[in-house]
């Protein structure tokens, strides 16, 4: 077992621990903090796969901005005892678990049976430069649409959260 495998196992453990915490904590504030742990694990995977820019974006946007947004929203809509805020539906939890297990089993079997013929790319490729050329080259329209989408979403979120004026 080399260093790369060890890093994969540790990061996978952190990520899955965080993900399981999201669905198993009964206090939703703890679930949100567990979600941050999972995001940080995924950011570690990005760093491991030579996607440093995406790893930093993941830490800033997901572990920073989105988690703070979620925790603020939780504080605003807390309506009962905090320890009862993240309970599962008594019937749907079994259906959900069954469907999730079926999904993981089928897709996992398909992945095990597939043969992929790729070789890992060279670790010293200039990924950030390539990404910049793509974003401002062939995919510039997607980039601009993403900018407009963010603007519209921010304006829409402010209007929705502020509420309409009573006539």
């Amino acid at each position: 077992m080399n260093m790369n495998d060890l890093v994969f196992i540790v990061l996978g453990f952190i990520t899955l621990l965080g993900a399981v915490g999201v669905v198993s904590f009964t206090n939703i504030v703890h679930a949100a903090l567990s979600l941050v742990l999972s995001f940080l694990g995924v950011a570690g995977f990005y760093f491991q796969m030579q996607a440093e820019f995406l790893g930093l974006v993941q830490i800033m946007v997901y572990a920073g901005a989105i988690s703070v947004l979620i925790i603020f929203a939780i504080m605003l809509v807390m309506d009962r005892d905090p320890n009862q805020t993240n309970i599962s539906h008594p019937v749907n939890r079994w259906w959900g678990g069954l469907i999730a297990l079926l999904f993981a089993g089928i897709i996992g079997f398909a992945i095990r049976e597939s043969r992929f013929t790729g070789q890992a790319g060279s670790p010293d490729a200039d990924r950030v430069g390539q990404l910049a050329e793509l974003v401002l080259g062939n995919y510039v329209i997607a980039f601009e649409i993403a900018a407009i989408l963010l603007l519209v979403a921010v304006v829409g979120a402010i209007i929705l959260a502020k509420g309409a004026k009573e006539q």
């Binding site: 993900a19 669905v23 939703i28 949100a32 999972s38 993240n86 469907i99 897709i107």
Partner: peptide, 17 residues
């Protein structure tokens, strides 16, 4: 990870969860 997400979506009652 995706399967854990599916379980959460199908079983949780809290919209934020």
């Amino acid at each position: 990870l995706f399967a854990v997400g599916i379980y959460g979506v199908l079983s949780k009652r809290n919209a934020v969860a």
